[in-house]
């Protein structure tokens, strides 16, 4: 059985249709859009907070979207163990909502970065990664101006102790070094999970790496992993 997927649409979301297309057309899941003013999740098993510039990214990225009516339901759903993936702006919203720890700063270069990056698995035992070979390096694009993940030392220690770091920016040969870090993110962190393991936030865009027509499909590995394992 495949999960029902709900893709939340905020004013300013711009990767919502890409996420919808990936789950509906390529992975053949029942998928629907959830407008930010709705309060119900329409029986969704998996919620996607897509990329974009919700509310113009005014004040801080994700800061206003976090108070959209639907976010109360998403927070409640996540707290009860429901599965959520926040991609790019979706990750920023999860940080602002306090579902995931840390904050997002402007890229160290101050430039918007839009390119393919390589991700090594820091934790291959999450519901989002357990079907991916631990040696696999994922080629997935980033597109953001504020992806410089930051957390204080105590938070980082907790993240590491609980195996909450899921993806790190690396070379295609799994070398993790500052030169492969597109945004200055602390410890090359590209994606983290909450302590309970049901909420993933990541800056790279797996939905943009799903259709073979685009020449790369590594994003499918993450989505297939959650689809295959969500009911186990």
């Amino acid at each position: 059985m495949k999960p029902k997927v709900g893709v939340v649409v905020f004013p300013g979301s711009n990767c919502d249709h890409d996420a919808y297309y990936a789950f509906k057309k390529l992975l053949e899941c029942e998928t629907r859009f959830l407008w930010h003013k709705e309060t119900g999740l329409q029986g969704s098993d998996l919620i996607i907070l897509p990329g974009g510039f919700s509310y113009g990214d005014y004040l801080r990225t994700g800061a206003i979207a976090r108070f959209s009516p639907i976010m109360n339901s998403v927070i409640d759903f996540a707290n009860k163990g429901g599965y959520v993936i926040g991609i790019c702006n979706g990750f920023q919203i999860l940080l602002e909502a306090g579902i995931l720890p840390g904050v997002m700063l402007k890229n160290k270069s101050l430039q918007f970065v839009c390119k393919d990056v390589y991700l090594s698995l820091a934790n291959d035992n999450t519901v989002f990664t357990k079907d991916i070979s631990p040696e696999k390096v994922l080629k997935i694009p980033v597109a953001h101006g504020e992806g410089n993940y930051f957390a204080d030392d105590r938070t980082l220690k907790t993240l590491e102790e609980n195996d909450q770091i899921v993806f790190r920016y690396s070379s295609p040969e799994r070398i993790i070094s500052e030169i492969y870090n597109p945004n200055g993110s602390v410890k090359n962190i590209a994606g983290i999970i909450n302590k309970q393991g049901n909420v993933l936030g990541m800056m790279p865009h797996p939905e943009r790496s799903c259709d073979p027509v685009l020449g790369k499909t590594d994003g499918q590995l993450i989505f297939r992993s959650i689809i295959n394992n969500i009911f186990n």
Partner: peptide
């Protein structure tokens, strides 16, 4: 003060 300010640096 402990948080980097890339804008200020630039």
């Amino acid at each position: 003060p402990s948080i980097l300010d890339p804008q200020g640096k630039a």
